[in-house]
Simulated assay, not measured.
Amino acid sequence: MRVRLTWAFCLSVLLGVTGGVNAEVRVSTATDPTAALDGRLTQLLGSERQALSAVRPDRLRQLTAPPRPRLSARRNGGGSEITYSREWLKSLPRASGGNEWSCLAEALYFEARGESVRGQFAVAEVILNRVDSASYPDTICGVVNQGTGRRYQCQFSYTCDGQKEVINETAAYERGGKIARAMIDGTPRTLTSGATHYHTKSVNPRWARSFPRTTTIGVHHFYRAPTRLSSN
């Protein structure tokens, strides 16, 4: 009788332990956090995929593009202080360069040769700020000639006014060339507070109503693109 009780007791204990293990396994499976997490991730990824599909491909490329390296800021060439004066500009050596320099020098000549030295530097800042921006071409020539040949699409009016670009004022072109050289070599851009747009005081374009104005130099108002998720 004593032996039977002992075996019965052992059997009940064994069955109890086994049942407990099974119960534990069932509970663990029912409350497995990875299962809930997988379902939640699937739901979130589906929502993200749906949201991304509504974004235009060109805008998506802009948002995901790595930042472009900014040209290094330093004093002009030999380390002379910049005073934005005709006298200071005359002290610089005659400038030369490749295609990028030529595009910037010509843009300054046709867009701003009647401006002060400071005003021409400001226009150069706008062009180089665009080069640094993911919203525009990544070369000076690309920025200057963007939209050329398409009606109402050119960014700089002289490239699509229907007139041949002829340089008649040699001295003015040489000044623009020196400014272009100084800016490409890394003159700090401190005049326009990051402006990417400008227009003369004689016009009032619609876009200027929503762009923050950063400064006015000579006959030009300068603007920075508004901060928003837009291609403008």
Rank of each mutant, 00 (worst) to 15 (best):
F110K: 00
G176K: 00
R4S: 09
H220E: 01
L45F: 12
R74Q: 10
F211M: 01
Q155K: 06
A122Y: 02
R70A: 15
V143F: 07
R56A: 15
T42A: 15
Y223T: 02
N22Y: 13
T190M: 07
A112L: 04
P67Y: 09
L71K: 09
T159C: 05
N129Y: 00
P226C: 01
R40P: 05
M1V: 08
Q50C: 07
R70H: 11
R2E: 14
A65V: 11
L191V: 01
I184L: 13
A8R: 12
E111H: 01
A105L: 02
V131R: 08
A105N: 06
R2H: 10
C154N: 12
A51G: 13
G46D: 14
R86F: 05
A171S: 12
W207V: 01
V219A: 09
L89W: 03
P69R: 14
R130K: 05
P57M: 07
N22L: 14
R75G: 09
R4N: 08
Q62L: 15
V123N: 00
Q62Y: 14
D161K: 04
I217F: 00
L63A: 10
R56D: 15
E87C: 00
S102H: 08
L89Q: 02
A122E: 00
R94F: 06
L89G: 01
D58V: 13
Q62E: 15
Q62S: 11
R61P: 05
G20C: 06
H199T: 09
D32G: 04
R26F: 10
A8I: 10
Q43G: 10
I179T: 03
T34W: 12
H221R: 09
K201H: 11
R224Y: 01
G162R: 03
W207R: 00
F110A: 00
V25Y: 10
S193T: 06
A112Q: 02
L60D: 06
R228C: 05
V17F: 10
R40G: 07
S133G: 03
T215L: 02
F156L: 11
G149C: 05
R40T: 14
G46R: 14
G79C: 08
V131P: 03
